[in-house]
Simulated assay, not measured.
Amino acid sequence: MFDEQDIMSLCKDAGFYPADEVKQLSKGWWSQAYSFRHEGKDWVLRINGSDKDFRKDQKAWELLHEITPVPGIRLIGKFRDNFYAVSEKCSGITLIDDHVTSSEIVFELFDTLLQMRTFNTNGLNGWALMNERFEGTYNSWEDWLLSFHNHKMDYTLQQLVNDGLFESMLHKVALNRIKQLLPFCKTEKYLVHGDAGFDNVLSDGKKITGVIDWGEAALGDFLYDIAYLFFNTETVDYKGYWQQFVQQRQLQIPFMEERLRCYQMVIGLNSVAIAAHTRNEKIYHLDRNKLMQLL
């Protein structure tokens, strides 16, 4: 944890001094974020133990800023045993559940995510989770869906079962159902954010003003981002909004329901694994119940 003096020292080392109005924005598993003001402009400072996610953010801006509101990173550097990145501050507020106040905002979110389909991925190698050079790290989209792997947490199925919370039968049943749905998930290669919505998307109430944190970015099916919204909220009816959106936009998406269900189960299985690994029993049982309803 960093105090205000640490942040001021970091800003000075990075050439952003004096830094005024320093405020902590978030404290996640992997990073901390702060806002500050320098020479009349608002900035965001993030600190992480690795610079890989920052490099992916930088690559996302380079490739996507003309079609998606990705904030530009001005500087990536090292501070003590950590890495930091300074980026432009997006206007608006994050789309955490109580900030989603209208269907117009949700439709803007869907439009923003689907706009990424226009990006030509032919020059990007591999599939699924990307490295900081935006190269997929799997041979196929299907390989990743079946991998039961988290690139930021070191666990195996056997370790989770041995720890006593994770149920091997739950994994077996969910994996079999995912395999049944895989034939419907053949897809062209699209750019996928992988962690869209909530505190990674900002809005001014009318437009989406920022899509941030590309650490989970992947190459695969654009519907994965929609399924992520479905699974990870209970207070916003993203499923209902999506049905309205598809009808209004007259979208024709082959095997849409099968693909969305498959990805929700993949997300759910990974979610209960993370909860088991971190010994968060409340989240484990909550996500387990959601996963069971999909089987």
Rank of each mutant, 00 (worst) to 15 (best):
M8C: 05
M8T: 13
S9M: 05
L10D: 09
C11W: 09
D13E: 15
G15W: 13
F16Y: 15
Y17F: 12
A19S: 10
W30N: 11
A33L: 07
K41H: 11
W43C: 04
S50E: 15
F54T: 04
Q58D: 05
E62D: 15
L63I: 09
L63R: 04
L64K: 06
I67Y: 10
V70H: 01
V70L: 04
K78I: 07
S87D: 07
S91N: 06
T94W: 11
D97Y: 14
V100Y: 04
S102M: 01
S103D: 09
V106F: 04
L109T: 12
Q115Y: 00
R117K: 14
T118Y: 05
L129V: 10
E132L: 01
T137R: 13
W144E: 02
L145R: 09
F148E: 09
N150M: 12
Q159C: 08
V161N: 10
D163K: 15
R177A: 04
C185F: 07
E188S: 10
G194L: 06
D199L: 01
N200Y: 08
D204G: 00
T209V: 04
I212Y: 06
A218T: 02
A227Q: 01
F230E: 02
F230R: 03
N232W: 10
T235S: 13
D237I: 10
Q243N: 15
Q244P: 04
Q247C: 12
Q248D: 03
R249W: 14
Q250P: 00
L251E: 14
Q252T: 09
Q252S: 11
P254L: 01
E257G: 06
E258K: 13
R259C: 01
I267P: 00
L269V: 08
S271V: 00
A273T: 07
R279C: 08
N280P: 06
R288Q: 15
K290C: 03
L291V: 10
L291H: 05
M292A: 13
